[in-house]
Nucleic acid binder design. Structure first.
Lengths: 347, 347
DNA sequence: ATCAATGAGGTGAACGTTCACACGAGGCGG
DNA sequence: CCGCCTCGTGTGAACGTTCACCTCATTGAT
C-alpha cells in the first residue's frame, strides 16, 4: 500500500542539500551563478527525493508563461485536429504545455462561461475560429485579452493583413482555383456542397470557400447555382447531397471538405452515376484517406499543421514582445488532381 | 491601446465590496453561510472588476483537483481521438480542465521526461496505452503515482479484472468474432493486416486483435498465416498489403483498423480484384467514413467515446475515494456487416 | 437571566514557486 | 591597503487561492 506521501518541494530539497530554497530554484532553472559543488549536492538531493517542479506554483509566482489553451468546437474535424497537432508539436519543442477546451455548439454558454474555461486571466489562447462557437469565442477573447490570443481560420489576404491576431490560409482563393479547374475541364457550371458557415450574430465569419467558388462562376459568366448546405458530419452530407446527385444536369460538385466529398461519391454511386464519367467531384483539405478512396479524390491540399505551428509562434510573439514576430511561411493551398474529376460526358 | 492592467484578485474584490477576502471566496464557491446582502455586494464588485478566479492558485492552495492530463502518442488515430472526446465531454460536464501531452514515438525521452510533462506531482492522468510510447508512459506512472492514473487500452477480461487502473474493451474477442464470421462465410482461412503491437521492452503490451484472430483459426483447425505487419498510416498499410492482394489464394483479410482496410480496398482495386467477389475485407473501429466507402466497409464497432468517459470516471474515483467506483457500462465491440464481405468465389 | 447553539464573517497560515534585493568573500586595479 | 566589482548564496516578500480556526452577534431553550 504505497501511501501517497506528499510530493517533495523545493524546500525539502534545500534542507537535504543544506542550501537555501533559492539556490535549488537556481539549479532547477539552470542559472549559471551557482558553484559546481553546490549544484551537484542539489542535484543529488533532487534525485534522492524524486523532486519534480510544480508548474502551477511556477506560473503563479510570475515565472515565464509556459502554457497555451486551445479553444475549439470539434477535434474530430480534420482541420482543427491537424492544427492542434501542429500547435502541440511546436509547444512541446519549447516545453510548453497544451490545454484543450471544447466549445459545445449546442451549449448556450454565456461569454463569461467561455473565459471561465481559461486557467487564469491572461492565459495565452488559440481559437479555432472556423465555425459559430469558435467565432464567438474569438470575439469574447478579443474583447477580454486581445494581447494573449490568436485565432486560426480561413481568411482572405486582406483580413489577415488587418488583424495581427489572425493566422490562416486563403481558402477562398483555393476554392476559386478548384472551380476554375472544373470549368476549364468543360463543365458548364459547378455546384457546391457547403460546410456550415460561421456567419451569425458575430461579424467576420463568412463562407470563404463558397465565396471563392461563386466569384469564379460569376466572372466566367456562368450560372451560379444555390449552394447546398450540409452539416459537418458525413451522414448529414449524404442526406443533403441527394438532390444534387439525382439531377442529371449536375456534372460537377465542389465539396466543402473531403468528408462531404466521400458522402457525395457514395450518393453518386447509389444513384447510378459514375465518377468522374457522369459527375466530377472535388473535395477540400486533402484528408489522409482521400488518396485511397476508389476512385481517388481530387482535392485541395492545406497544410493545417504548419498553420497551427504558425499560430503558436505568433502567440508567443504577442505574449512576449521580445520574441520576434514570425513570418508566415507555410505553403498556399494547392489543388491535387486525382481521379474523381474529368471532362463532362458528351451529350 | 488597452494596457494590460493586472487582473483583479480576490483581494481587490474584497476591498471594493468592503468585506474580507475569505468572504469573497465563499461567494465565489457558493458557500451558503453568507448573507444575501453581502453576497450581492460581492457579486457587484466581481462584475465591476471583471474578476475571474485563478485556477492555478486554486489548485495550489489545496482546493479540489479539477484537471486531468491525457498522455497519448497520436491524436490523429480514430481510437485515441474518440476517447479523448469522451474524456473531454465528461470533464467539461464537471468543469474540469483537460490538458493533453503527446508522446513522441521517435523521441528518446527518459522516464523523467515523461513525468516532467505533468503540471505537478500527483496530477490525475489518463494514458492511451495502445502502443509502445503509451505502454511505457503507463509503466512510468504506475511506478510513480499509481493512485492518480488510469490507462485506456485493449485488454482481455482477465487483465481488466486484475488491474484496477485499467479501462478498455476486449477487442481480442471482437477480432475473434469477425474471424469466425468470415470462416462461416466459407473462407478457408483469414489473413490479417496488423496494426503495430505494443510489445517491446515493456511487458503487458500485446496484439490483442491478432491474438483473437489466431485463436479462432487454430480452434477451427485452419492454417494460421503469418500476420502482415503494417504501420499506423494508410500509406504504410498500402505498401504492406501488396503481397496479400496479389495472392489469389487470399480470399479474406481482417484489417487492424478501418484505415488499413481502406488501403486494402484500394490495393485490391488496383490489383484487379473485386471486393467482396474475389476478396472479403473487414475493418476495425467503425470509423465514421467506413459506412460511406464504396463498397461500404464491414467493420467492428467500438464505442471509444464511452470508454473515454469511463476512464475519466474511474480516475475521479481513484483520486478521491469518496466518489464511488463507476461500473463499466459501455457496449461490447460488435461486428457490423456491410458490403465488403461475402462468400469466397467458386473455383 | 444564563448558556449553548447557530449564523455571519474575519484572521493568519499554507500551497510551491519566482523575483527583488541584500550580503559576504575574493580578486583586482589604483 | 583601500575601494569596487563580480561571484555565489541567502532573505523576505510576493503570486491568488483555500483551509483551519477564531470572533462576535443573535436566537432560543432552560
Amino acid at each position: 500500500m504505497a501511501q501517497a506521501k506528499k510530493a517533495a518541494s523545493i524546500w525539502d530539497v534545500a534542507r537535504l542539500a543544506g542550501v537555501s530554497h533559492q539556490t535549488v530554484s537556481r539549479v532547477v532553472n539552470g542559472s549559471p551563478r551557482v558553484a559546481a559543488a553546490t549544484r551537484d549536492k542539489v542535484l543529488e538531493a533532487i534525485t534522492e527525493l524524486g523532486y519534480r517542479p510544480n508548474r502551477l506554483a511556477r506560473s503563479l509566482a510570475g515565472g515565464a508563461v509556459e502554457s497555451v489553451t486551445v479553444l475549439t468546437a470539434d477535434i474530430s474535424l480534420y482541420g482543427p485536429e491537424a492544427a492542434l497537432r501542429g500547435i502541440e508539436k511546436a509547444a512541446r519543442a519549447l516545453d510548453w504545455s497544451v490545454q484543450i477546451s471544447v466549445l459545445d455548439p449546442a451549449d448556450t454558454h454565456s461569454d463569461a462561461d467561455i473565459i471561465a474555461r481559461l486557467p487564469r486571466a491572461g492565459e495565452p489562447t488559440i481559437i479555432m475560429a472556423h465555425d459559430e462557437p469558435g467565432m464567438r469565442a474569438k470575439q469574447v477573447l478579443l474583447d477580454t485579452q486581445p494581447q494573449a490570443m490568436v485565432a486560426i481560420g480561413p481568411y482572405t489576404a486582406e483580413e489577415l493583413a488587418a488583424s495581427p491576431w489572425l493566422v490562416g490560409m486563403d481558402d477562398g482563393k483555393a476554392a476559386a482555383e478548384a472551380t476554375r479547374y472544373l470549368l476549364d475541364l468543360g463543365h458548364t457550371t459547378v455546384h457546391h456542397l457547403a460546410i456550415p458557415t460561421s456567419t451569425g450574430t458575430f461579424g467576420g465569419g463568412r463562407a470563404h470557400r463558397a465565396e471563392g467558388w461563386a466569384r469564379v462562376l460569376r466572372e466566367a459568366g456562368r450560372p451560379v447555382p444555390e449552394p447546398v448546405p450540409s452539416g459537418w458530419t458525413i451522414a448529414e452530407a449524404f442526406k443533403a447531397v441527394q438532390p444534387l446527385v439525382a439531377d442529371p444536369e449536375v456534372t460537377a460538385i465542389l465539396c466543402g471538405n473531403d468528408h462531404l466529398a466521400l458522402a457525395t461519391m457514395r450518393a453518386a454511386h447509389l444513384a447510378g452515376r459514375s465518377v468522374p464519367g457522369d459527375l466530377s467531384i472535388v473535395g477540400f483539405d486533402n484528408t489522409p484517406f482521400s488518396a485511397y478512396t476508389t476512385p481517388a479524390l481530387t482535392t485541395v491540399n492545406q497544410d493545417f499543421e504548419s498553420v497551427g505551428r504558425g499560430a503558436f509562434e505568433l502567440l508567443r510573439h504577442r505574449v512576449d514582445s521580445s520574441i520576434p514576430r514570425p513570418v508566415p511561411g507555410w505553403p498556399e493551398p494547392e489543388l491535387i488532381v486525382r481521379e474523381t474529376s474529368g471532362p463532362p460526358a458528351e451529350h
